[in-house]
Each structure stands twice: as structure tokens, then as C-alpha cells.
Computed example of a mutant assay.
Amino acid sequence: MPANKPNSAHPYDPDTFQDGAFDPDDDAPDLTTPYWTAKFAAARVQRGRPKSAAPKISTTLRLDPEVLEAFKSSGPGWQSRMNEALRKAAGL
């Protein structure tokens, strides 16, 4: 070993942590140790999209085929454009 390189312990050496959470033959840590169980217990679980302040309502609406085709032919986002046209017609 070169003289200028200090002999340091590996940062995940089990002697450093004293909890046996590191196995040098395995890349994955032992997730059942108190350190990891506390981390998992404190973690906030968030699934899916955030809730909207004003969620849309799903409904069934019967439209003329020509009206629907006109909005769909204008490309992606046709539902939002149709919603905006209905809002305008309702004076909102």
C-alpha cells in the first residue's frame, strides 16, 4: 500500500455501524434492521395523482356524430376544448 494512502475502513463496514446491517458478500442491505424499519415507518406513502381542488365529474352525454368528429379531428386535447366550448356557451 502506498505510504500516502491512509488505511481506512469501508464506509459500510459492519464494525462501523455495529448493527450488522451490512453483508460484504451481498450488495443489498438488510432492511429488517432497526435503522431501516424506522425509516420505512416514518416514510409518507403517496400513491397516484394528487387530488384536484375541483375534480371533474364523469357523465354520459349524447352528441351528434358530426359535433364529436369535429372536436376529435382537431387532435389531442379535444375533450378539454369541448369542455371550454361548453363553459363558454354556459357563460362561465
Rank of each mutant, 00 (worst) to 15 (best):
G75T: 02
D27H: 10
P11K: 08
R87P: 02
D13M: 03
F71K: 04
L63S: 12
D30P: 00
M82Q: 09
Y35W: 09
D23E: 11
P24N: 06
P55W: 02
M82H: 06
S73F: 04
T59I: 12
P29Y: 01
R49S: 11
D19T: 05
K72V: 07
T33N: 06
P55R: 03
P50S: 08
E84Q: 15
A90G: 09
P29H: 01
W36P: 01
L92T: 06
G91E: 10
S58K: 11
K5F: 13
T33P: 00
A28M: 09
T60H: 09
A41H: 09
A89L: 12
L61W: 07
V45P: 03
A43Q: 11
P29E: 01
F71M: 10
L92K: 13
P65A: 13
F71S: 05
G48T: 08
K51N: 10
W78K: 04
G91V: 03
V67N: 06
D64V: 01
R47C: 05
D15V: 10
D64H: 11
K39Y: 04
L61V: 12
P2H: 13
I57M: 11
F22K: 00
N83M: 06
K72T: 08
G20T: 04
S52K: 10
G48H: 04
R44P: 11
F22Q: 03
P14A: 03
T59A: 12
R47H: 08
K5V: 14
